[in-house]
Amino acid sequence: MSVTIMPEAGGAHATLRRNFWRGVWRVMKRKPSRLVGVVIMAGFAFMGIAGPLLYPAQLPRDTDALYAPPSWQHPFGTDFEGTDVVALVVTGSQYVLLTAVITAVITVVLGTGIGLFSGFKRGRWDTVLMRVTDMKLTIPGLPLLLVLSTVWKFSAAFEMGLVLGLLGWGGVARAVRAQTLSLRERGFIEAARGLGLSTTHIVGRELLPSMAPYIAMNALIAVTGAVYAQVGLFFLGVLPFEASNWGVMLNTAVFGGGALTTTAALPYLMAPLLAILLLTLGIVLVVDAMDEIFNPRLREE
């Protein structure tokens, strides 16, 4: 055992890192469903990054087969132009997933940053920031988006993600602040202060890791929230669109193809829905492992 921590300080660091990933693997292995979740999420990540590269910029159209039923050639049939639905789902994923990731990053970074600062500093800054947060929480999201969509086209994923992220950080900030207020009174934080550790260290290396499972969970939930929100907007048709994405597909399937009244466009409707369902499932399965990953006590045995 003596070699695990020493002989070298740098080595010790590396060893602990490695132990962490070994622990993560153990946690994942404990429930195979978690591995399934990871595989699903990795699949979506690959789809979002490399998907559009797999197809030509202008997807081939088969004008002889409009709303073709599922076949080996077109597993989910074709759309109103005769384009393969699977190809549409894959190429349309980039906008959706990129938006979701940007939203999650903004939500978590802003929420955690403001929550930590407020909870740790307390006093005047806390009051000001929390009043701002409260005000932000009272802004209704959907109506604001509807209004914004009249002036903004959201043609880039970044714009969409920015708006959704700025709308979403309030809850996280509140919750992180509450956690910080509770954690900062704990013995080990007091001890860290008494032993002369710097404030940056205390906030970044002692407080933050204790909240890591919660924050990671919120990031993943923000991803699903962002997917629902933007797909909903496109589905309602309040956003003008130039390129295809899952929400646009749902919109055209229902309002263009009449998927709710005829069966012809049903596969076209089902494909993006299935993609959203699968993504949510993958996230739920991974979230299940978060607590055990970050808590060394649960990570072992």
């Binding site: 013995g187 080990f188 890791p209 808590n295």
Partner: peptide, 16 residues
């Protein structure tokens, strides 16, 4: 510290 039993970070090894 008082209650030194709780003065260690539960997420890190003592060495860290």
């Amino acid at each position: 510290f008082q209650a030194a039993q709780n003065s260690l970070n539960p997420l890190k090894t003592v060495g860290k």
